[in-house]
Design a protein around this nucleic acid. Structure first.
Length: 571
RNA sequence: UGGGACGUAGGCAAGCGGUAAGCCAUCAGGUUUUGGUCCUGACAUUUCGCAGGUUCGAAUCCUGCCGUCCCAGCCA
């Protein structure tokens, strides 16, 4: 978490920043988080802006939010709203520093003109196809080594400054068709680094922009725009992911040529997590093809999906800080994320009893019609959470899994003749059960209770190994419980086997809905977003689909389940 | 026959020439009215991708090799 209780581990970015401050390269730390509003933020972005905001915070600096919106074809205002909401929810604050690259178009245009005047940029008439051919390409050979021959200069490369100025002005004025001309940086068509071979700075696109409308028909490219936007905002450290490493020379070239504030770009490895996918393109496809209910489907690794599922911002931030920052390509086990959630919710979530798959338990010797109010602890990890009353009666719902006609080895719950404790209730002895002769399904379990054991205490110190949860049938609140499993079957869904598509790897059982779960009465008043631990089951949150009288809960994560492991081991 | 990076345990990750932190996972115990939590212990000891070299001493420095990732948008 962001608080001082967890000392942040050392990392190479911090080392660089410390050096820069010491050497006087920079006097302060000012970072930025530059999302493109073309999709919803996911946990991978959370790592990125956790680093951006976190570095600023640790060095007493600032972090801007800047929408990197220079591609009108993909961007939308709706994404801007979702992005802002998600960053805020995670607890980061950009104060009044909310910027848009699209607000810098005039400034950027001016710098482009400056480069033209210096002879460092030119208007090119090559088509996109020709541009590609002239650049030269990386070609995989039989040894899987790639070679790239030098590129060729465009025949328009040596136009005069005057001609370039005139042409560029006319590009802006809309005299040319889409793709007819580009503005290119004049660097080196034989450069070993492909991105340095006269990169395109501006392209013509007659597409209305969600913020600038039809004001522009030329749009700046990332490589040109980003360093100059950073400069304008006085960004000292421009932190980004590894794939931009190869762009750094270009980032620095534009700073030099435009003679602007020299921000330092530092790259770190992006996050990968097992059994899910962190690619906007794939996530978008899951949404558009309706494989999930939307960007905020609780199975999605989006911030919104995780929020809806029941993840706390604290757990996510803790996870982000614990995985560290490095340059090694990493693939973090999703169980680590789940661990962080359990650790947080264990301390904070109130306990409550709920039965997912109900089975009737009848207490034969319970006085007819009698109801008792039993006291239950809200959170054993937090005495301040207090206690609550839970109604107890002669007919209860228990978990179907907590009764076995023929118990497996070491099973210490209910089976004929066994003795178990009903949590906070009484110790009962199983006297029998009834079974549907046709289906073989257990329809009811019967038992007797020991009146001396109220609250679950055994005055004679007898050992009762099993304690199970329950809900009084007459007082139960019916819940719809949605249980989630991993979205993908394989650990690394990006590695698609021959002849398959990544969609083939989707887990068909990633959602199981139990419409007839039973919860104790306090759940009737639960509000959307509330998080609970359902004892012995897991952490659940109340879904926004809930309506009065129809509570829907999402299982965020199950409790660690040692019994499941034993069962698995025994086959 | 290109360029840029990265290789420390099953997964993350510290380590910055002085003799391999920590976390997740796993395994073995203990406590327990959640088979949860918590606690204890095990888990790289001719070992830091491999091979040489420098050094009293190397995961750390040098050389060579191997492996993996990124770059062929007028996307970001």
């Amino acid at each position: 978490m962001s608080d001082a209780s967890v000392p942040a581990a050392s990392d190479f970015i911090k080392d660089f920043i410390t050096e820069d401050l010491k050497s006087g390269r920079f006097k302060e730390v000012h970072t930025r988080f530059p999302p493109e509003p073309n999709g919803w933020l996911h946990i991978g972005h959370a790592k990125a802006f956790g680093i951006d905001f976190g570095m600023a915070e640790q060095f007493g600096g600032k972090c801007n939010l800047r929408f990197d919106d220079t591609n009108p074809e993909k961007e939308d205002i709706a994404y801007v709203e979702s992005i802002k909401r998600d960053i805020k929810w995670l607890g980061y604050d950009w104060e009044d520093r909310e910027y848009f690259a699209s607000d810098y178009y005039e400034y950027l245009y001016g710098l482009a003109v400056k480069l033209i005047k210096k002879g460092s940029a030119y208007v090119d008439d090559l088509s996109d196809q020709e541009t590609r051919e002239y650049r030269g390409t990386a070609v995989p050979d039989k040894n899987n080594i790639t070679i790239t021959p030098p590129g060729k200069n465009s025949p328009f490369r040596d136009r005069s400054v005057e001609e370039n100025l005139d042409l560029f002005a006319r590009m802006r004025a809309g005299e040319f068709g889409d793709g007819e001309k580009t503005l290119r940086a004049k660097i080196d068509m034989a450069h070993p680094n492909l991105v340095m071979r006269d990169p395109v700075m501006y392209r013509i696109r007659r597409v209305p922009h969600y913020r600038t409308g039809n004001a522009w028909c030329i749009y700046p490219m990332y490589d040109f725009q980003h360093p100059l936007s950073d400069a304008l905002e006085g960004i000292t450290h421009s932190l980004c992911s590894l794939e931009y490493e190869i762009h750094r020379p270009l980032y620095e070239w534009f700073i030099r040529e435009a003679e602007v504030f020299p921000s330092r770009q530092i790259e770190f490895a992006r996050l990968n997590i097992t059994r899910t996918v962190l690619s906007k393109r794939w996530l978008l496809q899951l949404v558009t093809e309706k494989r999930v209910s939307g960007w905020d489907d609780p199975r999605m690794p989006t911030i919104a999906g995780m929020r809806r599922r029941g993840y706390s911002p604290e757990a996510i931030r803790d996870f982000i800080s614990r995985i560290g920052v490095a340059k090694t390509d990493s693939f973090v086990d999703i169980q680590f994320l789940e661990h962080c959630l359990r650790e947080d919710l264990n301390k904070r979530a109130n306990r409550v009893m709920a039965v997912l798959k109900p089975l009737k338990l009848v207490i034969e010797n319970w006085p007819a019609g009698k109801v008792e109010e039993l006291e239950a602890v809200n959170n054993p990890e937090d005495p301040a959470a207090g206690t609550r009353k839970v109604p107890f009666s002669g007919e209860l719902w228990i978990e179907r899994d907590d009764f076995q006609e023929v118990p497996p080895p070491k099973y210490f719950r209910l089976f004929p003749g066994s003795m178990v404790r009903l949590r906070y209730g009484y110790i009962v002895t199983c006297t029998g059960f009834t079974k549907d002769p046709a289906s073989g399904e257990i329809t009811e379990v019967r038992c007797t209770y020991d009146a001396e054991t109220k609250g679950g205490n055994a005055p004679d110190n007898r050992k009762v190994k099993g304690t199970i949860h329950w809900v009084s049938a007459a007082h139960a609140v019916t819940l719809e419980a949605r249980l989630y499993d991993y979205l993908f079957l394989s650990e690394r869904p990006m590695e698609v086997p021959e002849g398959k598509t990544w969609m083939d790897d989707l887990n068909p059982a990633s959602l199981e809905s139990l419409p007839n779960a039973k919860g104790e009465p306090v759940l009737a008043n639960a509000k959307s977003g509330d998080r609970f631990q359902f004892e012995r089951l897991g952490y659940f949150s109340v879904d926004p689909d809930s309506k009065p009288g129809k509570i829907v809960v999402n299982r965020a994560v199950s409790l660690r389940d040692t019994w499941a492991k034993i069962e698995k081991k025994n086959g």
